[in-house]
Design a protein around this nucleic acid. Structure first.
Lengths: 241, 241
DNA sequence: TCAAAAGTGTTCCGAATACACCCATGC
DNA sequence: GCATGGGTGTATTCGGAACACTTTTGA
């Protein structure tokens, strides 16, 4: 089997047969949030290996494709969504992690703010479905590992950076925000104190809108104020909940 | 040029000519600490490309070698030290990051607690030298990027985990610890308050030893108590300075 | 006795906590 | 009216910041 000429490495006499034999892929841990529960999007494989198992969505990286682009493509192909929060969190490269050969995979996690859309099943997956992160099926490959590491990273990040807002719709109420953080961090906040703290940070922009169609006093809507946050961050402010 | 038979992927009909053409390497950002300054260990390349430039120490990963083992090897070959704190922090995979071809590199950072040893120059490096992280030379490849990301990761991690202790000798005084954290975080602590806070955490084991050969009152020595920390961590305690 | 760093105690202030209470809306 | 969540005020407690002071050693 010939390697295309552009991969010959004529000048440096690199041992291409020994070193340029890695497969490279990206796998995405896609988080969502719905009614107090943190969710993750999984697909059911319809090809071997692990046909029928649930798995993270991922794909091989093309030789001339950047990692981040590969991850973005995967996400867009599956969900149709662009410009989603995404972050590389760890690279998994155990020798035996893939039955096909040595495939190193770069893990990305992304946060989508509305899980009401209809995921588009890609060509190699029968179906996609949201799972509660506390109630996961058996996963293909080492995807259980990857997912756990992703969850750990999310929970860590969310304490010190305002990443969590990505899981809410752009306009949200303070109670919605509080419930999200309670789900993420695993403990309760006092309503009054939570409000005081988050509002005093000056990273929320109050809107002149209220929640509609609720059978109680309608709550004011807020927006995350990215600009203010960046400004405060420069002055040494650090988000902490 | 033939690919060895073990890399034929007969069953899955994988497009090996398109996908199994990646090079994989690890690069280590090795941090040290000396007299109030955070240092990083660099080597001067004695081969092309970038001959003569300073660079992070790294190496290609063998087809049957785990990433972490590769990073450990690199470190041991250069410094002769085993069992050093090491952590994967980011993977760099830009298409054009390496002039030889598509080489994806996994960044590790490690912390060594004594920089008084004599680094062993490996076969491909003329020499190794500690640099202050605020005064770095021009670096080969995209190593500047990698190094900056490593520094960022270290500074981040050190706030929320007791990782910093790895930069000190096993037995240290409270003032030494304070000066280290001042260097890491970039601001001063009040002596009395720093002591109170760190001692109340119960993660330091006081020793019945004092600093020798000092021309003033000798300070008590302490050890980081890994066991206590793990126990406290399980109960929800989180380190914070 | 002095320099230098070790080590302690105390006051003050602001932030976190706990908790109680009132408000607006739909049914 | 009442159920439901929205929203506010306050007293108390706790921890951090500032700063002053004493102790121990070597030279």
């Amino acid at each position: 089997m010939e390697i295309p000429s552009k991969y010959y490495i004529s000048d440096y006499k690199f041992p291409i047969d020994a070193y340029f034999v890695f497969g490279l892929s990206v796998d995405c841990v896609i988080f969502g949030y719905h009614e107090g529960e943190i969710k993750v999007l999984l697909v059911q494989r319809d090809v071997e290996p692990f046909k029928g198992h649930w798995a993270l969505i991922g794909d091989l990286v093309e030789p001339e494709q950047n990692l981040r682009d590969a991850a973005n493509n995967v996400l867009e192909k599956l969900t149709g969504l662009k410009n989603i929060y995404m972050k590389q969190f760890f690279t998994f490269g155990s020798v035996d992690r893939h039955p096909i050969g040595r495939v190193v995979t770069v893990g990305y996690f992304s946060l989508v703010n509305s899980i009401d859309y209809n995921p588009i099943a890609s060509s190699w997956a029968k179906s996609a479905q949201w799972f509660n992160i506390t109630d996961l099926p058996e996963l293909a490959f080492d995807h259980h590992n990857i997912l756990q590491k992703g969850i750990e990273t999310l929970k860590n990040e969310v304490r010190h950076k305002p990443t969590g807002f990505e899981l809410l719709p752009p306009k949200f109420t303070l109670l919605e925000l509080q419930l999200l953080y309670e789900a993420l961090l695993g403990y309760k906040f006092d309503k009054s104190n939570f409000r005081k703290k988050i509002l005093e940070m000056n990273i929320l922009k109050p809107l002149n809108e209220v929640k509609e169609n609720v059978s109680h006093r309608p709550a004011k809507l807020f927006q995350f104020d990215e600009k203010s946050y960046r400004a405060l961050e420069k002055e040494g402010f650090s988000f902490q909940l």
